[in-house]
């Protein structure tokens, strides 16, 4: 069994129509029933200790929902997450409850997740004190230790979040997660908002922490070159499910799903000057109303008859490389 086993994770939200939609509904201008959003239809993956799983996909395809389920913030509709063999969703044993705390999340906007009236010291120690991961007498040392791990001086502990730059606040957010002594870090767009030069600092920091503490990561980003740089394995999501997964080097060298290929050719790159070829047409479909067959078929240049009728299943193309696409004979149906 792998260090992290994610099995058949699913999340369905029953939406409450937003205020405007409800208003229009009340006026009879639109119907206002509450449809179900299949935010995550099926997500399975496994990861060894010290590995990094990169997660890529279009806006709204369910990446953050997966992250929040792993971090125990959102309860899955179905599925299991095993960390070191302990079920961190059910949390039915003391070991499993402890294992759940071994998973920590770092948000896109670290500053938004900090109370502006708390000093850095309190921001870092609040959760580990509450969960009994450290004793009050150890708090000072712990803060100094985690600040040092993110290359900041212990003096900053007495300052407030607004006194720091974006990159520094992001590092403080990481220090706070480290104070819980996690084994698995979930990073949801943790470098997206950062300047290029600060982004390099934070990426280097993630790599150092992995060396030093043997941390395992799930790393979500829409920047393909960042994911390629950091990840051992990569999963590509589209509309709530994985459409391709492989070791990072293999995936970037031999992408097999047409969506993955589109991502790679359209990723902005310093090498693509004044590019002229026409982009992928069409809109990302809504999870409220997915197209029949393969969800990617309306945008796929290679779509065939079968793609409009049947939904392709994720299937192994070769060792460790899976894709869900009828172009590959292994991907037989799943209507």
């Amino acid at each position: 069994m792998s260090f992290l086993e994610i099995k058949g994770l699913k999340k369905t939200f029953s939406t409450r129509p937003d205020l405007i939609a409800r208003g229009l509904g009340a006026l009879g201008l639109r119907n206002s029933t509450s449809p179900a959003v299949h935010a995550v239809r099926e997500f399975s993956a496994s990861l060894e200790r010290g590995e990094v799983l990169g997660l890529i996909g279009e806006s709204g395809c369910g990446k953050s929902t997966v992250a929040r389920m792993l971090a125990g913030i959102t309860r899955p509709t179905a599925g299991r997450v095993l960390l070191d063999g302990h079920d961190v969703i059910a949390r039915d044993t003391p070991e499993a409850r402890a294992a759940a705390l071994d998973i920590q999340m770092i948000f896109q906007d670290a500053a938004a997740a900090m109370n502006p009236r708390y000093r850095i010291f309190d921001i870092i120690t609040e959760a580990p004190l509450y969960h009994g991961r450290i004793k009050p007498s150890q708090a000072r040392d712990k803060v100094a230790e985690v600040l040092e791990a993110v290359s900041m001086s212990p003096d900053v502990a007495d300052r407030y979040p607004h006194q720091f730059s974006g990159g520094q606040r992001q590092r403080i957010g990481i220090a706070r997660a480290l104070a819980m002594q996690p084994k698995l870090l979930i990073c949801d767009e943790s470098v997206a908002a950062l300047d290029v030069s600060i982004q390099a600092q934070v990426i280097n920091l993630f790599m150092e922490l992995r060396e030093k503490f043997g941390l395992t990561y799930v790393f979500i980003s829409h920047d393909l070159s960042v994911v390629r740089h950091l990840s051992d394995r990569v999963a590509i999501m589209y509309l709530g499910e994985i459409v391709e997964a492989a070791p990072a080097a293999e995936l970037f060298a031999h992408p097999e799903h047409p969506y993955t290929r589109a991502l790679m050719t359209q990723n902005p790159s310093l090498k693509n000057r004044a590019r002229r070829h026409a982009p992928l047409a069409g809109e990302v479909p809504s999870p409220l109303d997915p197209p029949q067959g393969c969800y990617f078929n309306p945008r796929c240049r290679q779509a065939m008859e079968v793609c409009r009728a049947h939904h392709p299943a994720l299937a192994a193309l070769r060792a460790g490389h899976e894709a869900a696409c009828f172009l590959h004979s292994t991907s037989r149906t799943n209507p």
């Binding site: 030069s197 982004q199 390099a200 280097n204 740089h229 310093l270």
Partner: peptide
């Protein structure tokens, strides 16, 4: 700025800061 981008760097190499 250009040197600090991961693009074109070997995977996992420390980035220029």
């Amino acid at each position: 700025l250009i040197r600090s981008l991961p693009e074109g760097q070997p995977r996992g190499a420390a980035l220029f800061q």
